[in-house]
Nucleic acid binder design. Structure first.
Lengths: 224, 224
DNA sequence: AAGAAGGTGAACGGAAGGTGAACAAAAATC
DNA sequence: GATTTTTGTTCACCTTCCGTTCACCTTCTT
């Protein structure tokens, strides 16, 4: 299990990043400032740190220096909107990559993956649920020997459901994870995607099905 | 044992760097100019070169080009204090990293480690993906018995895709790796190069194709 | 039986990518 | 140094496909 430390004074960002990473199979730790970050680094087996530049107290550059030099860990820096100067400073401090806010959660995932690969930390983000094998890196689903290429939303949805097989996930939770907190569209949209997923899974397997739990949400059922 | 070549006309710097590296377990060679550097490169099994920009005679950029292109080795460039122009030139010459004088010895060590790690995989001079055999040193692509001469960008792109076959690379990642961080051009440029690559690959093989993953990026698919 | 929750098929709109051609820049050739 | 050729980028237009919505249907619950 790959562990990632998120250091940002903004609790909203902490939450957002943390959720994104966890739903992709990473273990996350959070810190709101450099001191907290260091105490987490001392205790836990962190593999990579995501660090915000602007923080009260010790700033992100300084923390980056500490993380890279004293702990030998890769760092991804979060910088405010398009300040070239910041980028330079960041790199000078030994950052492995940076990402400019506001950013797509997906983008962050890619960068993390790329950096980990560079560091030779094996990072196979694949998860299995019964016959299903879901490869998050490649957006690929395998059932037995056959591959399934799914549209993005359907893939995200399936991956989410498969991350906790045989367990109900509420409609709200699913929508929030796949569409984001700000989704204001028709809630029926979820139904349609579920329906399409069922259509795709049905011909390939009968041991993995999506069950409706009325008034609550959906559950990926795996029969052994 | 990893061997590092230090090229700088300033004997003080040579000594400083050399000591730092040796005390960290590297074997070091020294050269005071480009000609010396080349003769060392020819004789010894150097793994990485640290090169100063400002040198009498052949300058650091030119030497960097020689080292990367003819010897296929990573280079870390030493530049004088904060000249942005220098950095650009350095990167354009194929540097893997640069460091601004004056620098912390630790900083240099970290960069060297990072670069060497990074070179673990791509440094395999010829890299195979299915029928494809890509020779990074000669910019040559072989498919079965036939050779392919590709324009630089197309080659870079293909080599990058082939370095992780059957794995999706995001559009951003591809652009960043092939064009560099500062690329601000039309993102559609990538499409065109992908298209041209496909046109070239199609008549030669059917077992290696470039797949589009909508909303994400591209993947070099190898069918066995 | 009625209302609520979910299922379903079709259709629309738009985003993402594909493509051909024009243009610009760089390299090679003469 | 002028030319031709190759390479890289941009643009306009086209195609495909995905995500969403909507209207209507079915199932479940009480």
């Amino acid at each position: 299990m790959t562990s990632i430390l998120i250091t940002d004074d903004d609790p909203y960002i902490r939450k957002l990043v943390s959720r994104t990473l966890e739903s992709s199979g990473y273990e996350t730790y959070r810190a709101s400032n450099a001191d907290e970050a260091i105490s987490v680094l001392d205790k836990s087996g962190i593999d990579l740190a995501v660090v915000d530049v602007m923080m009260p107290g010790t700033d992100g550059y300084t923390l980056t220096k500490i993380v890279t030099e004293d702990y030998g860990l890769p760092v991804i820096l979060l910088t405010a909107k398009g300040e070239l100067h910041d980028k330079e400073q960041g790199y000078r401090a030994g950052t492995d990559d940076y990402i400019v806010k506001p950013f797509e959660p997906k983008e962050l995932l890619f960068r993390i993956e790329a950096v980990l690969r560079r560091y030779d930390k094996p990072n196979v983000q694949s998860l299995a649920a019964g016959e299903l094998v879901i490869d998050r890196n490649n957006y690929d689903v395998r059932i037995g020997t056959s591959h399934l290429m799914l549209p993005l939303k359907e893939f995200d949805l399936l991956a989410l459901l498969a991350s906790t097989p045989n367990r109900v996930l509420s409609r709200d939770h699913l929508i929030e994870q796949v569409w984001g907190l700000e989704f204001e569209g028709d809630e029926r949209t979820l139904n349609v995607h579920i329906k399409r997923l069922r259509e795709r899974l049905a011909p390939l397997t009968h041991s993995v099905t999506i069950q409706t739990v009325r008034g609550v949400g959906y559950r990926l059922e795996v029969n052994g």
